[in-house]
Nucleic acid binder design. Structure first.
Lengths: 336, 336
DNA sequence: TCATAAAAATGAAACGTTTCATTTTTATAA
DNA sequence: TTATAAAAATGAAACGTTTCATTTTTATGA
């Protein structure tokens, strides 16, 4: 049905090798070039990628593994990465993991069996399946892991943010505004990002000679619902905090939802700092003070580095850290 | 490097055909089954998808074409669709179009050259490249087009929402609350969804014997910035409307941003109805009254129908319409 | 014009599967 | 036990490319 190189060969009277040469940008006599091009046009020929991949072992496919939990974060990243990679002829294959170990494993194997040329992975929460798979990988394709370090796995390039100091910055800011009782909401207790962000929280309190009260440290999960429930818990404390620091985007939404629902005025009744994206800082009134991850920059860096790696220019694995910034809104009041 | 079927054949002493039979779920003697399975385990064998695709002309790949403009809408859809399809062993290949005709075309061809088994397309804005490509497609793979009808193209299944009546519902609601001067913000003037939603607006006004004043009909584009600018335009009118109906999610965000920035109280200074997702209805205070598209249901329907089509059970192309609902928030005040 | 070097074209083999017509093995029943 | 039917296994060919050693054509300069 579909035209093949053979059809072109017949139509032009040239050999398969010559057509292939043309297709791969090698030199071909001017007259033959024209011959081939018109044949391609007339036959509506497209390269069969399966055949090409089979032979070259390259797929021009980049696997993009994202966790079900961090979809908002991932979506932003995906769109930037896709734009850059597709310009260079690569396709992006998304796969969402974190629902079931078995299916996760199948998906990863699937990516592998399609000869993905490289991988971008956002592991987010601990995922044993992913880690086992990574470690079992023999073919040394470039892998960039975002947002989190996987212990005793050093065959990938890590792209990270300064979670600890970003978190510390947020708490320092609150303390600077005279908040004495600050609650923090984290994701799952063993998750890399949560651990790091908690460290920053504690460090700030310690440096300011403030007590660390575990009652004010809430663990939940990185979802809107998770934020909502965590906030609910906070409001059951006898001694309410004057400020809440939420360490993820979706959870921040959940907290705002709770506060609105209970008519608690943000920036008056309670101060708030959120995390991740600035999408909503201006949407909510007052705008929410946020720790912003430079997602776009991270995504661009990731995509371009991957392209370098694929050109075999180099493949260095020093982790790189991006810096979060604090974007002031009106959600933190200054106490006296 | 990677183990092949041949290695398994050698290790087990069975023929290629038998291994292939096993791999494809056909019957194999118990003793051989065990032989094969241990060999696969020991060699760490995975099917080479390129080879399989080349032979079978099936890729287990679903192309997902989304417009750069509607990323929020698409992200939701993608995650639902991916979840369902991946459970059945399909992988999803995302491609974002709408940046440049040339690159769009390359991307579509790319999808095709990888033998995508089916396609899900969200065309959104008019995209000549996409339409030309669609019409040139000869191999009759199942295609589901979402959110918009492409004129004189009937080889696809369309999944839509009742844009016109949803829009009418919103305006009816405003009129019911005694709003006399209602502004509407649409996307690009020739876009299917915009046209349909404008129809609903006009129909409502007509039915209620109200004047249709073009000054109150603003066209912009489906982005946050677009919404912001449209809103700015509205506030330059001599006679301000008492309500604004924004016909897309991102634009709704932009409008809220503008209103917050200018300290215009939503639900007091101006009433507002948004469109698409209910993500933010509860985040903003007062919550925004919204026309909600049943995206999850649409996505599920799309994925399951596609699976049916792929099983060749049937491929019927009657368009299906989903119904939007109006979710009341506090952003519309009742006038007296 | 001819010898030589460089450029272009050739074509068979290979990539790792599946397919299918054929052969071999196993199960069934007389 | 044997004839027969059913089940399982076989192996060569094919899918559409690329590769590469070899041959042919073209360009260069004396």
């Amino acid at each position: 049905m579909e035209a093949t190189i053979k059809d072109i060969s017949e139509k032009t009277g040239l050999s398969l090798g010559t057509i292939s040469n043309y297709l791969n940008g090698r030199n071909v006599k001017e007259i033959n070039r024209i011959l081939i091009e018109t044949a391609i046009e007339e036959l509506g020929y497209n390269v069969n990628m399966s055949a090409r991949s089979l032979k070259t072992k390259q797929s021009k496919l980049i696997g993009l593994v994202v966790p079900s939990s961090e979809l908002t974060f991932s979506a932003k990243l995906v769109s930037v990465v896709e734009k850059i990679l597709s310009k260079k002829g690569f396709m992006v294959m998304i796969t969402v993991i974190g629902h079931s170990p078995l299916i996760d494993y199948q998906k990863l194997i699937n990516l592998q069996s399609r000869n993905a040329d490289a991988m971008i992975i956002i592991p987010s929460t601990n995922n044993e399946t992913l880690e086992k798979w990574l470690k079992s990988l023999k073919s040394p394709i470039p892998i960039i892991i975002l947002d989190r370090i996987i212990e005793d796995y050093n065959k990938a390039k890590y792209v990270l943010v300064n979670n600890e100091s970003a978190s510390k910055m947020a708490v320092d800011y609150l303390i600077h505004k005279n908040h004495k009782l600050i609650s923090i909401i984290g994701g799952d207790m063993d998750g890399y990002t949560t651990i790091e962000r908690m460290k920053g929280y504690k460090k700030s309190l310690e440096e300011n000679d403030m007590e660390i009260n575990p009652d004010y440290i809430i663990y939940s999960d990185f979802t809107i619902r998770g934020g909502y429930l965590a906030c609910e818990k906070i409001f059951q404390l006898k001694n309410l905090p004057s400020a809440i620091f939420v360490t993820n985007y979706d959870m921040t939404l959940g907290v705002i939802e709770y506060l609105n629902e209970h008519n608690i005025k943000i920036g008056e009744g309670i101060s708030l700092i959120g995390f991740d994206l600035d999408d909503l800082t201006k949407i909510v009134n007052p705008s929410i003070t946020m720790i912003i991850q430079p997602i776009k920059e991270m995504a661009e860096y990731t995509a371009y580095r991957l392209l370098d790696f694929l050109k075999r220019e180099y493949y260095e694995k020093t982790p790189i850290f991006f810096t979060c910034t604090l974007k002031e809104g009106g959600s933190v009041s200054e106490l006296i």
